[in-house]
Design a protein around this nucleic acid. Structure first.
Lengths: 326, 326
DNA sequence: CTGAAAGCGCTTACAG
DNA sequence: CTGAAAGCGCTTACAG
């Protein structure tokens, strides 16, 4: 049914060898312009496209970059990243395909199904997965996330540093008793734990007691309970896991009659549109998505060229955005 | 380097035929239990995994379902959908891979690179793309989005109906002059246009004048300008493209000193967490993501079984969520 | 300058 | 009950 290179060869009156040479623009061969044109025309007219399976089988490697996404909810960072990656790789004739790291199926099955050229992990791989992929000749690029480890990074950003910056900002605004608002979604532990470590460290460094920890759902009722906890502990500031949680914190404090920032200051992470539209406008930590995405894309390209995917650390991508809530 | 079926055959002292029969559990063949066990053990020990490329080449079709995502920003709907799909398909030995419909590369290239079994489009395909895929023996499942057409649907939901429901709710609460808050992101036109059509239709049906249309960025300044437009036109209600835009509308009205809902009622779409945490809590249209995702997953499965992906229309997934903002 | 032939790793009629 | 052989569509030394 499908058109093969043999059909093209037949139509243009040459051998499959010649067809392959012409279509792959093989250097070192000299093919007459007339022949070349005839082959190209026939291929065009027949709508010929080489079989990826055959090509992969022959070459032992495909033109595919497989991006493995983590199980946690993805946001605009990933979107931007995939954009960058797809653009940059398309120029090199490679395609990007994404696997959402969910469902019961282990990763090992997947990379065998597509024999990708490179696998880019936005989540940590099991060491044995990495080993088998490498053994199969597949390049593996990672982002060095080590769940639970205080130095865990993702997109080349230190989660711990984020927590530190939140507290440093709050302390600079004169706050002395810090609360922590964590998410209840356990899939986010990979991020929230190192951030809390950072918050705690910064408190210690500033000579403050350990943070008052509370977790909350994105609902008013849940946020009210958390507000009570902070109130009872005399907290005058709350560092939230991210802007979504911070919005819930604002709602909870409001419902409990605590004024922001007079009674309690609040700071989030991510600088989402909703953050600057909140009342009061929410202070936050911005992450420079573009820079991170460009960095990861560059790391992937480097891996394609034979490096191991390690690049010099990117420029500072974190910044405090001070608004009315602190 | 990689382990092949020949290695397994050698290790277990049988032919490749037998290895294939055992590993694929071929019915109609009778292989002694002893042989079977020997083959299985050898495969296990050698870490054998069949080459996808060879298998695909031989069978003319892979075990891959390719989901093509649209260019617009994706949200939790897609996440849930992919979860469902991956789970359901894994049971049938198929893997789900996702392509973000961005970047300069045309779709045509991509499906040739992976020879998927089925392509699921969450965005409209070019007719010629569909044709060439079908001709190549690939199943194509769509969601019947026809950009610009008032009956455009996505995830089996009528966008037009969403707009209608917003206005019906506002009218039920006694509002008579409706404003529309559209997004500036042109990638969203596929959704926003049919929704505005629905809003306009419902206004007409209720004997009201056409809606006062404004578009806005997710920023206070932009939202203030929009608020001025509605104010000058005497609007007493605003239907927003979604909750994000509605949040901006709230901020803009607040900045302009207009009270919600006293002066102006506001309703969004999506029922995001931020909507119920806003002040005042935002009325919205909820979409029952779970139902939609399950529906699409079922349609894909049906396509696998040879149907054309059309299922009976799903149960009503839209509902008005009335809160303080109306 | 171009072609015949081998081989990538698999599955599957067809023999035995 | 098991094996030798063909063939999926491609690329690439190797001959001419």
């Amino acid at each position: 049914m499908a058109v093969t290179s043999a059909d093209v060869a037949h139509a243009s009156g040459v051998s499959r060898t010649t067809v392959s040479y012409v279509l792959n623009d093989r250097s070192g061969t000299t093919i007459s312009d007339a022949t070349r044109r005839r082959v190209l025309e026939a291929a065009e007219q027949l709508g010929y496209a080489p079989s990826a399976a055959a090509r992969t089988l022959r070459r032992g490697r495909s033109d595919l970059v497989l991006v493995v996404l983590p199980h946690w909810p993805i946001g605009p960072v990933i979107d931007t990243l995939l954009d960058h990656l797809a653009d940059d790789l398309a120029e090199r004739g490679m395609s990007v395909l994404v696997h959402h790291g969910r469902g019961p199926r282990p990763l090992s099955d997947l990379w065998r199904v597509v024999t990708p050229h490179t696998v880019v992990g936005l989540t940590a791989f099991a060491p044995q997965d990495v080993q088998s992929m490498r053994r199969a000749g597949i390049r593996v690029v990672g982002t060095r996330i080590d769940a639970g480890h205080p130095d865990a990074t993702s997109y080349a950003v230190s989660q711990r540093r984020i927590g530190q910056m939140q507290v440093e900002h709050l302390v600079a605004r004169g706050r002395r008793r810090i609360g922590w608002a964590g998410p209840t979604d356990s899939r986010l532990a990979e991020f929230s734990e190192p951030r809390l470590v950072g918050v705690t460290e910064a408190c210690t460094a500033a000579g403050l007691p350990a943070p008052v920890v509370a977790t909350l759902e994105l609902e008013v009722a849940s946020a009210r309970s958390a507000a009570t906890i902070w109130h009872d502990a005399g907290a005058d500031a709350v560092a939230a896991y991210n802007d979504d949680v911070a919005l819930a914190v604002l709602a909870g404090l409001r419902a409990e009659g605590m004024a922001v920032p007079t009674d309690v200051a609040v700071i989030g992470v991510d600088d989402t549109p909703a953050a600057r539209l909140a009342c009061p406008a929410l202070s936050t930590i911005s992450q420079s998505i573009e820079l991170q995405a460009a960095y990861l894309a560059a790391a992937t390209i480097a891996a394609l060229d034979g490096d191991d995917g390690r690049l010099p650390w990117p420029p500072d991508v974190l910044a405090v955005v001070g608004r009315d809530s602190t």
